[in-house]
Amino acid sequence: MFIDVANLKKSYTTGVIKTDVLRGIEMNLGKGEIGVILGPSGSGKSTLMNIIGGIDRGDSGKVTVDGTEISKLSDDDLTEYRREEVGFVFQFYNLVPNLTVGENIEVVSNISKSPLNVDEVLTAVEMLDKKHRFPRELSGGEQQRVSIARAIVKNPKLLLCDEPTGALDYQTSRSILKLLQVVNKKFGTTILMITHNAAIADMANKVFRLRSGEIVEASVNQTTVAAERIEW
């Protein structure tokens, strides 16, 4: 498996109160697949994704990505892992406001060993004509396209998307989901996506439902639905 999570536990202590965020997560996702994590607020979705992305660490358990047990990596090795292997797409895009579209993508291509061509990536997300615009001159959907372009320019093995359509309207959301599917097919990128929107689960190969830090249901879609056909 490309992603293999075994008995992952994580808790936070605030004062005297201990909160178990992840309680022995077991999950896996194959290479080139799209996985969707569904769950209500506070179920541990983001924490799980952060640990898989090398931003956070679990208390115990094992997280393996593409054969590397990332739970054993040092801070510096985790930096290298994020640098070369993982791309991030955020709900609120997190573009650097005083950099142009092209420069925002360069933020990542600048440090990547073998990045894709910036213009090619912008063409792929249909944003080449807006390369010299600043983020505030773009709509929310356009900003998310730039965010995706930024994430894929390093040609990552794994793309982690945290509510990528959470701040977008219906039509724009569908175009973004379609774009993610295109990226998945074109570049063979494994995608793990967090969402509240259960309808999005139809486009995934695997769906994980989280509740109170536990996976209550893991299902496999034998046939995935094209993003443009998803409705909610």
Binding site: G53, I55, D76, T79, E80, Y81, R82, R83, E84, V86, F88, N94, V96, V107, V108, I111
Partner: peptide, 13 residues
């Protein structure tokens, strides 16, 4: 702060 945080996520040393 936000940009620095992003840089860290993207794997900047």
């Amino acid at each position: 702060r936000n940009t620095i945080s992003l840089f860290k996520i993207f794997g900047y040393r």
